[in-house]
Nucleic acid binder design. Structure first.
Lengths: 114, 114
DNA sequence: CTTATATATTCATTTATAAGAATATAGTGC
DNA sequence: GCACTATATTCTTATAAATGAATATATAAG
């Protein structure tokens, strides 16, 4: 039950749902998500840790960059199922579509270090 | 996004997951769930309200009895999906199987009014 | 109406969670 | 090693959520 609750809890926060929807479109680093969500960097890191613990995302380091992407679902059947469904869920949610639309204008070269 | 978060939050509490798994097997009244979960009656009522608001359960009154059962999913696509999956999820969870096994010995005639 | 029973709601308390400022850690380049 | 950048973690605070005791409400029976 622990793994199931972890996924449910991870997806109970609006900002974490936003992170998932963004990562459906683009691999991102922490400061890109910070800019997109307009929240403090520590909050982003903490959200990502929860998502990672739940098996919903994973990261690769590329130098000083830490790039996050959606997990493939191998870590948790619950994560796999929710990630699969979220591919088509909430696609018409205005708040989410607005954030996703703005992704094309978010580049780490313009943003990070600020 | 609100409806999605409601379902996620509703399923983030272990006792509420237990309620769902029990209702997979049997229509139940509040005091039967109170006995099965070994928690206070007000807590049961409050959990049920959250589950109902999320579209996961519904109730019928039968005289002074209020009987709860799993929703059919028509109120929320998210609830429908999670309820469908939970039919086979967590079936090997020891805590949950133990509670479900004890259901056969839980009868309101023996319990309520205590 | 009164009494009994089932359940919902309120109240007070405790625990969990989310936020940002501050700080620590990791990686890069000179 | 030092300075810079990206990110993780800690600390503090505010808010949300869970709990049970107490109380209110709904239904049944006499």
């Amino acid at each position: 039950m622990k793994a199931f609750l972890k996924v449910m809890r991870a997806l109970s926060d609006p900002n974490r749902v936003k992170i998932i929807k963004m990562l459906q479109h683009k691999v991102m680093c922490v400061c890109e998500m910070r800019a997109a969500l307009q929240i403090a960097q520590p909050s982003v890191s903490k959200h990502l840790k929860i998502l990672e613990d739940a098996g919903l995302v994973f990261f690769h380091k590329d130098g000083m960059w830490v790039n996050y992407q959606l997990a493939d679902g191998s870590a948790s059947p619950y994560a796999a199922s929710l990630l699969g469904n979220l591919r088509h869920w909430l696609e018409d949610d205005s708040e989410l579509t607005e954030i996703v639309e703005k992704l094309s204008s978010i580049r780490r070269e313009d943003l990070c270090g600020r």
